[in-house]
Design a protein around this nucleic acid. Sequence first.
DNA 1: ATTTATGCAAAAACTTTGCATCCAG
DNA 2: CTGGATGCAAAGTTTTTGCATAAAT
Lengths: 155, 155
Amino acid sequence: MHSTGRTTNENAARAVAGHSSISSFLINHGIKPTRQRVAIATHLFEKDQHLSADIILDKVNKDSTISTVSKATVYNTLKLFVDEGILREVAIDPERILFDTNTKDHHHILNVDTGEIRDIEPLQIDTSSLPELLGEKLDSVDLILKVRNQLSAPR
Amino acid sequence: MHSTGRTTNENAARAVAGHSSISSFLINHGIKPTRQRVAIATHLFEKDQHLSADIILDKVNKDSTISTVSKATVYNTLKLFVDEGILREVAIDPERILFDTNTKDHHHILNVDTGEIRDIEPLQIDTSSLPELLGEKLDSVDLILKVRNQLSAPR
DNA sequence: ATTTATGCAAAAACTTTGCATCCAG
DNA sequence: CTGGATGCAAAGTTTTTGCATAAAT
């Protein structure tokens, strides 16, 4: 229902590239660009990444060239960004709720040894054996491939 | 490394069916069957289900024909069950960490309107377009299909 | 001036830890 | 007895809420 002809992520990238046009990026999505929100958005959207609420808090308050922010505001702002569709909340690792700045259709690889998360292109999934959805429609497909380091036998 | 010729779930079902042989089920998995653990396991494994820590606490303490249990013990016991492989921690909904009594290979459908979670058989996934895993090996595949109720137009 | 939105301190909810107690050998 | 395991109160984290303040009309 946002009527730009551009995807969210192109906007985000452009906004960051164009430095302080983070503001217009937020405005374009119906979000008032307060100092705190601009500070949070600047750190969030600097690249595609998966961050937890308190990592974001740290980032923002360490480099507080823009503004310092409370924990509550970080949580509230992240929730707002999710509601407005510029950020995605993902349950990749049960240990931590992460926010994913890539809102395009994609899947994840989680290295359970290192905690590293990588984005991958959507894979083909054969849903022909799926039981029919009565009165329901498919909304999204979350796929997480968990991998481990090959510590021992290379074979 | 557990050497019964039976799957975990058959054991669980049998254990519950055979009433107080929950104890032997726990013992078979190297878990000392204390009163608290038996109480928790009895409620957990009564059927395949997805429960959060405090739902389990409620269940156990409401019907405390066996024992009453503190919150901490529920958390510690659940973690123990996960470590011993009779329970699975799943990140299906970012809002809540759930424990899944079905430890067989399977996937999930989450109805985001109702919060209901259903198990489904593993679907075929085409991994041919996957980037190669250098020094890593695939450990598990988590697939969550999110569905919505068809509130409006059926077409 | 009134209304609506914002940001944060405090409260609530969730999870972990340290230690007193229990139990098996 | 003794050593290891157990269970929980209390501490530590994380998240939400309610309200004082700020912005917009």
